[in-house]
């Protein structure tokens, strides 16, 4: 998938992406500060909003094969189970009991199938929205800030699961986060967003160690300081 000269204006905010390639079967990371345009780009890819100019070449990918977990997931007014199987239901597919249990067990939620989805803790709601996005085996998954809200153990669990999926049946992922630390272990390629532009793209190594862009160095330094790994 390739994004060419994409432009979108929302109020005072101007998104402008000249060239961004999302390679198939790879894990991509969108990283950047709050309001840098990551979610807006994801929404453009998902066709939730339409660009003012430029285009997205999907390269044979259909919109129904793309999914996105929202930074604020929408859960149906129903049980965890009903939420989980919704994408299967609309595709006329029958979920198997084992598959559901297996998925829920990934996040230790196997006892919660009958619980009202909106009564889950916010982290559990995020997990449910991720499982729901994965259940119908889409070809491109956009995970918007969902990892950012999980506890460390769940993040580890999730990373292990993604790597396993990638070995079996490669899927394209776009992981969005406002922290480099959430992404660099996982992502094959990272794209750094700033003020509505992608100012750097490359492997995690390239972004972390070889990029001279002052903005990115500053961003990294601040993150390190906040994590207490670097004392001023």
């Amino acid at each position: 998938m390739r994004i060419r000269n994409l432009e979108k204006r929302i109020g005072d905010f101007q998104l402008k992406i000249e060239d961004l390639t999302i390679e198939e079967g790879k894990i991509h990371g969108f990283v950047g500060g709050n309001g840098s345009g990551k979610t807006t780009t994801a929404k453009l890819i998902m066709d939730i909003i339409q660009p003012d100019a430029g285009r997205i070449e999907y390269g044979g990918l259909k919109l129904t094969d793309i999914t996105m977990t929202s930074q604020r997931p929408y859960l149906l007014h129903d049980t965890v189970y009903a939420n989980l199987v919704y994408p299967l239901k609309i595709r006329g597919r029958k979920p198997s009991k084992e598959q559901i249990q297996e998925l829920l067990a990934l996040f230790g939620m196997q006892d919660k199938a009958k619980q009202y989805a909106r009564s889950l803790s916010s982290g559990e709601q995020q997990k449910l929205s991720m499982l729901r996005a994965m259940i119908f085996e889409p070809k491109l998954l956009i995970i918007d800030e969902t990892l950012s809200n999980l506890d460390p153990e769940s993040v580890e669990q999730f990373e292990r699961m993604i790597l396993e999926i990638q070995k079996k049946r490669p899927v394209t992922w776009i992981m969005i986060s406002h922290r480099l630390s959430h992404l660099y272990r996982l992502c094959d390629r990272m794209h750094f967003f700033s003020c509505g532009r992608v100012i750097a793209s490359g492997t995690a190594e390239e972004i972390l160690f070889a990029n001279e862009e002052p903005e990115i160095r500053r961003f990294m330094a601040k993150e390190l300081v906040q994590r207490g790994e670097y004392d001023l």
């Binding site: 998902m46 929202s70 609309i90």
Partner: peptide, 27 residues
């Protein structure tokens, strides 16, 4: 708005989206 965005991310058709909206608003 939220239901429509959700339905889109799930790949629902127009009819499925409308049905979902009614269901989500049923109470």
């Amino acid at each position: 708005p939220a239901v429509r965005v959700f339905a889109k991310t799930m790949g629902a058709s127009r009819l499925q989206t409308s049905l979902l909206l009614v269901k989500e608003m049923k109470y």
